[in-house]
Design a protein around this nucleic acid. Structure first.
Length: 282
DNA sequence: AATGGGACCTGCGCGC
DNA sequence: TGCGCGCAGGTCCCAT
């Protein structure tokens, strides 16, 4: 369930540690996660290639390669990118490794020059790896709405006023705004004191302003703390993200609201669990 | 346009 | 102890 803050954290970790490294061998343990091109071509287009730069768009990671192709990685729900480092390479990072010996649910292993291995782990096999000539032309990328941090309040406000939809599913709609998932939608709405069932266009100006501020604030803070490790998400080092201790509502069904002590409720919205405080969020 | 459902998957926790 | 079931949620796809 990595969302924007988790993917951004991994991006920054990768940027620091993987940039400039050469991939010498690609071991595919489960070809299901390779979406394009076919397996043989996929491996061939990655071997003996250097990673130049790491980019992120919404929840998608993009590796810019020295052969002018791009490797895109979507973690979906249980995907992980974890670095298994040779003990001698970087002693200070070894401490946080979850599996110095072997990788759990490794589906693809990228062997790097120097001996480190970058594992793509994915318990549920929803994750998607692609090598493409132009990642911006991917249908998925074309369908994405703006990044939360690229959006002005003026535009946000006007976008909301055109939508009758309930605000919670709308925040999670990747074609509307990209990068926000179930967890952060809930936390943002709590911060803005808005009930998840409210219609977008029915929000007052003050509520829209609070929503915008919380969207920026919650996401920024979550990135600062390395994201939320609630299920499988871990950072490149294998360490957990630290933001879960700031969660106000997500996963807190029947626990007292930190603000008013009312019990946190969980309702179903579009097949997904929505956590909120019925007292604070009106 | 908006909404609801199923599909893709696997592991976990629950009730019996 | 074991079994079956529902649930978790990112994205796509189809139906209404």
């Amino acid at each position: 369930m990595p969302e924007l803050p988790e993917v951004e954290t991994i991006k920054q970790d990768l940027q620091k540690i993987i940039t400039g490294k050469k991939i010498i061998k690609v071991c595919v343990h489960n070809p299901k996660v390779i979406r394009e091109p076919a397996l043989k071509a996929f491996k061939k287009s990655l071997e003996d290639v250097t990673i130049k730069r790491i980019l992120r768009r919404a929840k998608l990671l993009i590796f810019e390669l020295s052969n002018s192709l791009f490797l895109t990685v979507h973690l979906k729900m249980t995907g992980q990118l974890v670095l298994r480092q040779k003990l001698s390479t970087n002693p200070e990072l070894v401490e946080g490794l979850v599996y110095p010996g072997g990788a759990k649910n490794s589906r693809v292993a990228f062997h790097l020059a120097g001996g480190d291995i970058l594992d793509f782990n994915d318990q549920r096999l929803f994750g998607e790896l692609r090598v493409v000539g132009d990642w911006k032309k991917l249908k998925f990328v074309q369908s994405l709405g703006p990044e939360p941090f690229d959006l002005t309040y003026f535009d946000f406000r006007n976008m909301l006023s055109k939508k009758k939809t309930k605000i919670k599913p709308l925040l999670m709609d990747q074609g509307f705004i990209s990068g926000i998932g179930n967890l952060y939608a809930a936390e943002i709405l709590f911060g803005a004191k808005i009930n998840p069932e409210r219609s977008a266009q029915g929000l007052t100006e003050a509520e829209k302003a609070r929503l915008y501020k919380e969207m920026q604030g919650v996401l920024t803070s979550a990135i600062k703390h390395g994201g939320s490790s609630v299920d499988d998400y871990v950072r490149l080092s294998g360490k957990r993200g630290d933001y879960a201790r700031f969660h106000q509502v997500y996963g807190r069904i029947n626990e007292p609201c930190f603000v008013c002590k009312t019990l946190i409720q969980r309702i179903a919205q579009g097949g997904r669990g929505t956590y909120f405080c019925p007292q604070c969020q009106r």
